[in-house]
Amino acid sequence: MTGNEGPARNLDGPASPATAPPFEQLVLESRDIQAFLTELAILASSRLSAPGNTIHSGVTVLRHRKPEAVAASDAAAKALDELQNGFGQGPCLTALRRKTTLLVPDLAAESRWRPYLRTAMEHGVSSILAVPLNLAGDAEAVLNFYSGCSNGFTSEDVATAEMFAGQAASSLRLILRITQLSEARNDLSAAMQSRTVIDMAIGAIMAQNRCDRDTAFNILTRTSSARNVKLREVAAIVITSISGERGIGTHIDE
Rank of each mutant, 00 (worst) to 15 (best):
L135S: 12
P51C: 07
S147F: 09
S224K: 01
M206F: 08
G52H: 11
L93P: 02
A50R: 13
L117Y: 06
S16G: 14
L28P: 09
L103M: 06
A95E: 15
G86M: 08
A184V: 14
A168Y: 05
R118L: 14
S241A: 03
R213I: 07
T94H: 00
S30P: 01
L117G: 04
A76W: 10
Y116L: 06
R65H: 11
G152L: 08
S225D: 12
N53W: 11
Q34N: 07
G148R: 00
A50G: 11
A18M: 03
F87P: 02
N53R: 08
E110F: 03
A95Y: 02
M192Y: 12
E254A: 12
G13C: 01
A139M: 14
N10C: 08
A18T: 12
A201C: 05
I198K: 02
T154L: 08
A75N: 08
N218W: 06
I202M: 13
A168T: 01
S126H: 13
L117E: 12
R246L: 00
E140R: 06
E254L: 14
L11R: 09
N228L: 10
S111P: 05
F23C: 07
I55Q: 12
V142R: 05
A216M: 03
L188Y: 15
T19Q: 13
S73D: 02
E233Q: 05
L48W: 06
K99W: 08
N144I: 06
D138I: 11
S57K: 12
D253Y: 14
N144D: 04
L129Q: 01
G152R: 02
L129C: 09
D199E: 10
L143Y: 12
N10H: 09
I55W: 04
I55M: 10
I242G: 01
L102I: 00
H251F: 10
L93N: 03
C149V: 04
N4G: 07
A76I: 05
R210Q: 09
H56W: 02
A79K: 01
G203R: 03
V158I: 12
C211K: 14
G6P: 10
S182E: 15
G88D: 02
H251N: 14
F164D: 13
G86A: 10
F153L: 07
L133K: 03
S182R: 07
P14D: 12
A216S: 08
T221M: 15
R65L: 06
A120M: 01
A226V: 03
I198S: 04
T119N: 11
D199W: 04
G52I: 01
S16E: 11
G124P: 00
P67W: 08
A204C: 06
I55S: 09
R114K: 11
M163H: 06
L96E: 09
R31N: 10
P91R: 14
A235V: 04
V238K: 09
D187N: 14
D187L: 10
I205K: 06
L43P: 01
L80H: 01
S111Q: 10
G249C: 02
P21D: 10
G166I: 09
P22D: 15
R213M: 14
L28C: 15
E156H: 05
I252D: 11
V229D: 05
R232N: 07
M163Q: 13
D214R: 13
I128S: 08
C92Y: 12
L129K: 15
T60H: 02
E156T: 09
G90Y: 00
A20E: 14
E39A: 13
R112I: 05
I202V: 10
A76F: 03
I237A: 08
R31F: 07
L102H: 11
I205Y: 01
